[in-house]
Deep mutational scan, measured.
Amino acid sequence: MQIFVKTLTGKTITLEVEPSDTIENVKAKIQDKEGIPPDQQRLIFAGKQLEDGRTLSDYNIQKESTLHLVLR
């Protein structure tokens, strides 16, 4: 499924993921596309910060959901 990741600069990254993918996994995909190390990434969905060990389905993230990427 496709999800979108919006950065603070207003750029939107499109990722191909599975509901069973972990947040860690998603961060690795963002690193592949954008070169941002996962340890600098914070992903936010519905106002919650997403934890590395959880999966997209844990957070009920469905196709075409938009996550927000904050760098630390």
Rank of each mutant, 00 (worst) to 15 (best):
I3R: 00
I3N: 00
I3M: 08
F4I: 09
F4R: 06
F4V: 07
F4P: 01
V5N: 00
K6S: 14
K6P: 01
K6Y: 08
K6D: 08
L8C: 03
L8P: 10
G10D: 09
G10R: 04
G10H: 14
K11M: 14
K11T: 10
K11A: 06
K11H: 15
T12K: 05
I13N: 02
T14E: 08
T14F: 14
T14W: 07
T14P: 13
T14H: 09
L15K: 00
E16A: 14
E16K: 15
E16I: 13
E16Y: 15
E16D: 12
P19M: 11
P19C: 02
S20D: 09
D21N: 08
D21Y: 14
D21C: 03
D21S: 12
D21G: 04
T22Y: 07
T22K: 07
I23Q: 03
E24P: 05
E24S: 08
N25K: 10
V26R: 00
V26T: 13
K27V: 03
K27P: 00
K27I: 03
K27Y: 05
K27L: 05
K27F: 03
A28M: 15
A28T: 12
K29C: 03
K29S: 11
K29D: 15
I30Q: 00
Q31R: 07
D32N: 12
D32Q: 08
D32I: 08
K33A: 10
K33D: 06
E34H: 05
E34I: 05
E34P: 02
G35R: 09
G35Q: 11
G35D: 07
I36R: 03
P37G: 09
P38C: 02
D39I: 14
D39K: 09
D39Q: 07
D39C: 03
Q40M: 07
Q40R: 06
Q40A: 11
Q41N: 03
Q41I: 04
Q41R: 02
R42W: 14
R42C: 03
R42L: 15
L43D: 00
A46H: 15
G47W: 15
G47I: 02
K48T: 13
K48A: 14
K48C: 02
K48G: 14
Q49E: 15
Q49N: 09
L50Q: 00
L50M: 07
L50K: 00
L50V: 07
E51Q: 07
E51P: 04
E51K: 05
D52Y: 04
D52H: 14
D52W: 04
D52K: 05
D52L: 05
G53S: 11
G53T: 11
R54L: 14
L56C: 02
L56T: 03
S57M: 05
S57Y: 10
S57E: 05
S57L: 15
D58N: 09
Y59H: 06
Y59C: 02
N60R: 13
N60E: 06
N60W: 06
N60Q: 06
I61E: 01
I61Q: 00
I61D: 00
Q62S: 13
Q62I: 14
K63M: 11
K63E: 08
K63F: 11
E64S: 15
E64H: 15
E64K: 05
S65N: 07
T66A: 07
T66K: 06
T66F: 07
T66W: 07
L67W: 01
L67N: 01
H68P: 01
L69Y: 02
L69D: 01
V70T: 08
V70P: 01
